[in-house]
Amino acid sequence: MNTNIWFNQLRVLAHMALTVMGLMLITNTALAERTLLNVSYDPTRELYKEYNPLFIQHWKAKTGETVAIQQSHGGAGKQARAVLDGLEADVVTLALAYDIDQLYNKARLIPENWQSLLPNNSSPYTSTIVFVVRKGNPKQIKDWIDLTKDGVSVVTPNPKTSGGARWNYLAAWSYALKHNNNSEAAAKDFIGKLYKNAAVLDTGARGSTTSFVEREIGDVLITWENEAYLVLNEFGADKYEVVTPSFSILAEPPVAVIDKVVKKNGNQDIASDYLAYLYSKEAQEIIAKNHYRPTDKDIAAKYEKQFPNLELVTIAQLGGWNDAQKKHFADDGVFDQIYDQGK
């Protein structure tokens, strides 16, 4: 008898479980509006949090349709990998062109000429690489050369997984070439010393920021300009300072519509307008406010004071991403050589 009661209770429980599951499935499918998935890199969380409502408003005014936008953030290399593995991104907004190139090279998800489809190499905003130091700059860090000194502890992500980290690395590399009459041996030596000073190599830019700020590791954080100012805003200008070096790299984080996915989802119109609208005056204002360098001339002039002028090398001057990737970040590339030596 006792068992029967127990068994009945079990049946009741199973019924309840099934009902709840059913309800959840219904509520999930009830939202039939079109949704767009933007797969992005780490530090753009705040930017797209502000841009998405603006775009939803714009699209509603233009077409009367209410769309929903979903976000996914992570290290750029990891995110590109996920899209290759089937994460159905309608658009990608990643840290560097190389990662988007892989979507053509490995799976033909986008056309080969994707980077010429939108203005300015498909980069609606640019940025550069700067330093964040603790208040008062106790180690007197002014330029790249100071990062190679003994006793300076550097925080930067791993170039193998993070797009931002590759920009950091290439900025340091170009600086070393410039100051050593383009001697690659000297540049290797310089980079080797710099990475020997690295306290941790996180997988993404945001992880490095957390290491530097919340775990209080390191004397200097090498990071995106926008991420550097975010640190000041979030954690107090009374605790940190941004140091802009004499020389850095012009980082162009590009955007692209994933043709194969939008065709399948029927999202072509929203996806292309979502990226095109990033170049509008309204969006460029948000971009500047989030400390990305706007590409619109008027907005750039308006926020001129916010962005110090410094000499910037471009990735094209370094021979493009394919060459840079092969030479520096592929297995047994320069990074592996200097990092193994450092150990």
Partner: peptide, 24 residues
């Protein structure tokens, strides 16, 4: 599971063709 059901995985192509989403 990514290697099995991902777009580049063993069953990836078949799943894509039949519009079955497993991974992500």
């Amino acid at each position: 599971f990514v290697l099995l059901f991902g777009a580049q995985g063993v069953f990836g192509e078949w799943l894509m063709a039949h519009d079955v989403k497993i991974i992500f």
